[in-house]
Simulated assay, not measured.
Amino acid sequence: MNVQVIDGANGFVGSHLTGALLARGDEVIALARASAKVVRRRVADALLCLGFDESLADRLRVRGLALDEPDLGLPVAEVFAERCTFWHTAALVTFFPRREEDLLNVNVAGSANALATYERHARPGSRYIFIGTAYQCGLDTEGPVPEDWPAHASPDRFRNFYEYSKREAEIALARSRSAREGAVLVARLGVMVGHSRTGRALTDYGLYDFLRVMAFFARRTPGERVRLPCHPDANLHLTPIDATVSRLLSLSGGDQDRPIFHVVNGGTVPVRDLFDVINARLPIELVPATPEQILERPFNRFEAVVNMRAKYTATYFRHHYDFEWRDPAAPPAVTPAVLDRLVSWYVREGLPE
């Protein structure tokens, strides 16, 4: 059994993946900037969320990580003492402007440093798994996005610089020795959400950032009607953390004919359905509107303010996405009941007071 090395182990995906590997009985080395105490607490929370014994986090080996230092600042003789699967989950996730330099430093240069460290020190037979995003496709969404290595595109072809940075990291990975030798797996994730059976989420990104903004305005001025610009068939590839971790474990253990996988679901969530669930759980009425409808009747002041606050996540409502997916017969992970569970848990438990 390989040793599992996970960088970014205190992140949302990293902590749940670490917990699932510990629960499977694997030896796991967690790499993170945070202290060992913080990492173990995050992994213990993830174990509890996944339904496992949180005390398994005590078995975790934690080592400091510095993406900008030679060899990541690691004790490489220890970390790479045996053949391993190296999971690169560490990333900066932000849609806000003026973070371009930070995104390049972490997601592009940091990813390159992680790969170089792995290639210098990993034992023969090791494997490198890069956690990416399905939305690295940017604005070029005609037809299903293929599970192929991407080509260069200018930053203006993306909704945000985060997408661009993740695509650039994939392009660099495609040129690597590990990719040529078939030792690389790229797992492109959808929109990460909480646990499908409980709704519990240990993150404030993506959908939850949008919910937080909507709840803020709903509580201040309940009952208001807000239109948001949407594609007529806008959809979201919501991916519960439990389903994502299960798929990642399955992918990592098999021999694959192609190195790139979209870790999404065949069934997507229409944005209209999301709005209906939010409207049922918060004192606000969200209404999808086409650009033509908004041009015909411009936003009132309240609508303009809400749209301004939500613009970084709501931009995903303006497109319809299809991704190649290799298990079309599988049932969707987010049914209407699961969607209601995800939203209601966050409204009840996750929102700041």
Rank of each mutant, 00 (worst) to 15 (best):
E119C: 11
E119S: 14
E119F: 08
R120M: 06
R120A: 13
R120P: 01
H121S: 05
A122S: 08
R123Y: 02
P124F: 04
G125H: 07
G125E: 00
S126G: 05
R127N: 11
I129M: 13
F130I: 00
I131N: 10
G132C: 04
G132M: 07
G132F: 02
G132A: 14
Y135K: 05
Y135C: 06
Y135R: 01
C137T: 12
D140H: 13
D140S: 12
T141F: 10
T141E: 13
E142R: 14
P144V: 09
E147F: 02
E147Q: 13
P150K: 01
P150T: 09
A151N: 14
H152M: 14
A153P: 07
P155T: 00
R159Y: 09
E163Y: 05
E163W: 04
K166V: 07
K166G: 05
K166I: 02
R167E: 05
E168S: 12
I171N: 08
I171M: 15
A172R: 13
A172C: 08
L173I: 07
L173E: 10
L173R: 05
L173A: 06
A174Y: 01
R175D: 15
S176N: 02
R180L: 14
R180H: 15
V184F: 09
L185W: 06
L185I: 14
V186R: 04
A187T: 04
R188V: 02
V191I: 15
G194H: 03
H195V: 09
H195I: 05
S196C: 02
R197Q: 14
T198D: 03
G199Q: 09
R200K: 11
A201H: 00
L202I: 12
L202S: 11
Y205V: 12
G206M: 01
L207G: 03
L207T: 01
L207W: 00
L207I: 05
Y208D: 07
Y208R: 01
F210Q: 06
L211A: 04
R212G: 12
V213R: 03
A215F: 04
F216Q: 13
F217E: 02
F217P: 03
F217N: 00
A218P: 00
T221D: 11
G223T: 00
E224Y: 01
R225I: 03
V226D: 07
P229F: 09
D233N: 12
N235W: 03
L236I: 04
L238N: 04
P240E: 07
P240T: 01
A243M: 09
T244M: 10
T244N: 00
T244W: 01
S246M: 11
S246G: 12
R247L: 15
L249G: 07
L249K: 04
L251R: 03
L251E: 05
S252I: 06
S252P: 04
G253C: 10
G254Q: 15
D255K: 12
R258K: 14
F261L: 11
F261C: 11
F261H: 15
H262F: 07
H262S: 12
H262P: 09
